[in-house]
Design a protein around this nucleic acid. Structure first.
Lengths: 201, 201
DNA sequence: GTCTATAGGCGGATAGAC
DNA sequence: GTCTATCCGCCTATAGAC
């Protein structure tokens, strides 16, 4: 992964202001969405003036784009890592691990991931190409996993893998709407969801 | 249903301008969401001046609230009607009919329903009490149907009905993100989805 | 790197003529 | 019922001092 490395290098050179701005933007985007979140709010929360943001970023779009892509990449990497850890497990166990990783990344780790969902679910903003690519790459992970499950017989051969993938991701991302830390347990939710769409084994 | 009757009566008295405004607002809200949709846009699309909207509505919130509630009520009534039509069918067939009705109402009939999803999914606006009530009432329909399926044995007794309901509605409403009229068939999608979460029978 | 100041436009909303 | 005119505040973005 070369991007994170480059990013860390850049941060070292400029004292992390850029990261601070992105962190703050992520938090505000998560609760407010694209249009409600203003540069004034971000600047205020960071503790600088609105105009100073333009030293670090060329536009609001650029800030949002970076937050959103970071969020999707974070979920992507978490799911890939979970699948690698469960490489030897049963297909059903791998599915459950992937779902658990997705939900954990979405709800347990920072604002970037939730902000991603909130901002680019629906076309609330003109979706940049980079975002489209990052999303597509993540979609491929699930396409592969579902194909694997179907080949292993954990999903019936007559089920449409594409419909299944869209339903599943929709349901997982929709959890930003109703999930609350105290009221649900992510591991249990993952178990429930996995049981819905694949046979145990 | 007394509300629609009252509404029709009102419309007769004022020439349908009110309905025209709501129709237009629904269309814009569907594609733009709450914050992106402005009174100026609505007025322009209707063909009147911004200020004239205030003769018909007290505020932007009032317009949005009415669109959203109409949308949810439309889906609610469609699903209830479908269940009534399939009163004698098997639990699985009733589930499939309900899913098909939800998806059809969501995608096949106007902008109100999609606007509802788009606007109040996430808390993009301060959710009025009336909206909360209308949503809750619709949620009850699914709670009842899922309980029925579980009692009939079409859903395993160890499945959490609440997790299942949230998964189901999240997946269905998420379809506003990817569903396109030519590329998917609603009846097929309903069949796929019903097969996913309940045993045939 | 951050500041002040400002440009130019759009947001919702109101007053009052017709 | 619709209009013109206007208020006031916030928006993104830029210019230029420090």
């Amino acid at each position: 992964m070369s991007a994170p490395v480059a990013k860390v290098a850049r941060e070292g050179a400029e004292g992390g202001s850029r990261r601070l701005i992105l962190d703050t933007a992520a938090r505000l985007l998560r609760s407010g969405g694209y249009h409600q979140t203003t540069l004034r709010e971000i600047a205020e929360a960071v503790g600088i003036r609105k105009a100073s943001l333009y030293y670090h970023f060329a536009s609001k779009e650029e800030i949002v784009e970076e937050v959103v892509n970071d969020g999707v990449r974070f979920v992507h990497e978490a799911v890939v890592a979970a699948l690698a850890e469960h490489a030897a497990a049963s297909p059903h166990a791998r599915l459950e691990a992937a779902i658990r990783a997705h939900l954990t990344a979405l709800h347990g780790h920072g604002d970037y991931t939730s902000a991603s969902i909130k901002v680019f679910t629906f076309g609330a903003m003109p979706v940049p190409d980079s975002v489209r690519q990052v999303r597509r790459a993540y979609g491929e992970v699930w396409r592969g996993l579902i194909a694997e499950l179907q080949q292993a017989g954990a999903i019936a051969p007559e089920r449409s893998p594409e419909a299944l993938r869209l339903f599943l991701l929709g349901a997982l991302n929709g959890s930003t709407d109703w999930y609350r830390p105290g009221r649900f347990d992510i591991a249990e939710l993952a178990q429930e969801f996995a049981a819905l769409i694949a046979q145990a084994g």
